[in-house]
Design a protein around this nucleic acid. Sequence first.
DNA 1: ATTTCCATGTAATTCGTTACATGATTCT
DNA 2: AGAATCATGTAACGAATTACATGGAAAT
Lengths: 181, 181
Amino acid sequence: MSLRYAMLGLIAELDGASGYDLLKVFEISLGTVWQATQSQLYGELARLTEAGLIEVSAEGARRRKEYAITEAGRAELRHWLIDVPPKPNPRDEPLLRIFFLNQIEPDEALDYLNRMADALTERTKELQNLENTVPWEEGGALADNGRLTMEYGKRFLAMRRDWYIWAREQFQARVEAAKAE
Amino acid sequence: MSLRYAMLGLIAELDGASGYDLLKVFEISLGTVWQATQSQLYGELARLTEAGLIEVSAEGARRRKEYAITEAGRAELRHWLIDVPPKPNPRDEPLLRIFFLNQIEPDEALDYLNRMADALTERTKELQNLENTVPWEEGGALADNGRLTMEYGKRFLAMRRDWYIWAREQFQARVEAAKAE
DNA sequence: ATTTCCATGTAATTCGTTACATGATTCT
DNA sequence: AGAATCATGTAACGAATTACATGGAAAT
């Protein structure tokens, strides 16, 4: 159900946004945190309008429809932010794989852990580049909060890279202990 | 598609497991990393059998069916582990909320950030308790890998708690700067 | 006897992805 | 004139959630 609130929140911040505008925002600034397809967006816009949480505030050229949040929508968004406890992800694919590491050869497993650590180092560089090129000045409050999530992203990458390095060491120690027998 | 491999991997490790057995494993040891419902499991068991990746190795009392991985299944699992790059989560609800923090009052936002940090401290304690009560000796390789994910869980919790504390400071500084104008 | 646990399945609904389809405006 | 971009929608499919339904065996 969170897509609903993601859209509600964006419409609250970016007043007079169209479905197309939202799509761009999802692609660019929200892409790392929440993904949505064009199909989903237009469907949810219809449902939000139906539910009275947003309304068409203007119609522009090329069939463009601009949306604005209603009072009911604002209340709903506020309620979600304050009263509904956020639920963390119930699924983590990279971590799932760790459980099955002994299904491949020890060397392959060590290699896998190395590759994962390297990939995270690579992504850290990319994120750093992104941070350097984003025009932070514009955008106001949304950009300020974007900066918070940028820092989160950096810490998350670093934590995982460190963990892969640590896990590799653990795994290797295990392999060598087994060999010594 | 990862549920498929989660089940394939479990059947490879726990030879002769039934759907019911897998369900228990998902509830207990795999629950923090990958969730699946009973409905999903039985459906996927049928599909995996259909695809020749597993087979019914025995039938027991109470309609129990035990499954074993086939050679084709082993190859498929191995291929997934080695060749298919894992994809990290495209959605993070707690982080999404951060974008809309300025939709509520500054005091409420600060309060929210505090509550999130506290909740993570709480969950750290729970995880520590869990670690102390899990019988690590049994279970062999699966348990060894479980220990790796346990450490991941601890680091992840700590990272998020620290970040919430940091974010709270950032947010407060912003609020005070705005007040000073 | 009856509760509890083992055990498997199906149905209905919602959410997400990919693909298809089309029209209007601006730019070169 | 033609390409690129803006803009909205629908259809088909697959994955996930919730609920329903039932039966056999063991324990109290």
